[in-house]
Design a protein around this nucleic acid. Structure first.
Lengths: 188, 188
DNA sequence: TTATATAGTATCGATTCGATACCATAATCA
DNA sequence: TGATTATGGTATCGAATCGATACTATATAA
């Protein structure tokens, strides 16, 4: 069992990313968690761009996340749009300033630099290892997986470029199925 | 280039560990960063168990770390011992309560559980992947590597169970060379 | 001896974070 | 239909992180 070793590496790598994030974010008066929330909102689909879903993703209470989002809105990195069908729900859309910020800082310059020193094979192997580790962790703990539609058991391919979600009973475009979803459930 | 994918996985895994840590630590009134500091101090050698080294490891300012350590001391998880040679320096020793705490919470129950579902091969592969990723990141960014003496260019094997550090010019036991060191430099 | 570097601490203000209380809308059910 | 309950979200408070700054004590260099 190499549990401890794996734990140490993940903790250390996560830590380093956080240090980068703190330094980069400081330039715009942003905290690591705020960048992370913005990052999430940039890669999730229309079922998942709400404060509630963000709270589930970050593992924080909705009150905490509400404050985080307020800061991001005040700084002009996202705007809130009330849902047409359910007026309790708000959707969080990145502004162009928000997009620009992420392109600049996510991943951090340091991390990009490091990845360039890895061979293609290494990168492929690392991706598959991390994927397995993450999926195992999420499955074991009964957590939401936040995967993309492509790997979701609810997703159904109708024809080329036409998909259908069997959970929401709505059609999805080929662009949409590349985004992560709060309702995602791994194909078994 | 799979930079973004790798970044996402690491960020997500690190995030999950932090959520576990926050929940576990809360039982003893400890924050994630405090558990992390204690964890570091439990696996570092006698050159590296100081506030300064902890600050370098965590990537935080010495002032910040000083407060973290004060809390851990007040709660009885570590004690401070002034260095004999340099009276500015203090060494941080875990108490038995500190040891016990780590055994209970590091790695988190959830993480141990998840790792048990991974095959031996998977674990071995994950370890080697993460190691490569971490080393590349640290090397690229000119960071301290915080490795164990075994992989350090300053370490010299005299005979079975007898080692010597060419940096500090001191002998090291076979037990000591399994601990991480702030002066560690990878063999090239 | 004087200056400078280093290890560490103390204090302050901005911010995170969870807990609690609260509001508005939706869903349930008698 | 009308009352109850559930859900999404916000506001406020207190404890804690974190960096910046200023500070003390010891060690090293000039």
């Amino acid at each position: 069992m190499k549990t401890n070793q794996i734990y140490d590496y993940i903790e250390r790598l996560g830590n380093l990313l956080r240090v980068d994030s703190r330094r980069d974010g400081a330039e715009h008066g942003l905290q690591p968690v705020q960048l992370e929330a913005l990052h999430y909102l940039s890669v999730c689909n229309r079922y998942s761009d709400t404060p509630k879903a963000t709270s589930e993703y970050l593992g924080q209470t909705k009150g905490t996340v509400s404050q985080t989002l307020k800061v991001l809105e005040k700084k002009g990195f996202l705007r809130k749009v009330t849902d047409d069908n359910d007026k309790r729900v708000v959707h969080l859309k990145l502004t162009s300033a928000g997009d620009k910020l992420l392109q600049q800082f996510i991943p951090s310059r340091q991390f990009k630099e490091a990845c360039q020193h890895l061979s293609d094979e290494s990168q492929t192997q690392i991706v598959s290892c991390l994927k397995e580790l993450l999926q195992t962790t999420q499955r074991t703990n009964g957590m939401k997986t936040f995967g993309v539609c492509h790997s979701c058991r609810f997703n159904q391919k109708i024809k080329a470029d036409r998909y259908f979600c069997n959970l929401t009973q709505e059609p999805l475009s080929s662009k949409e199925i590349q985004l992560i979803c709060r309702e995602h459930e791994e194909v078994v």
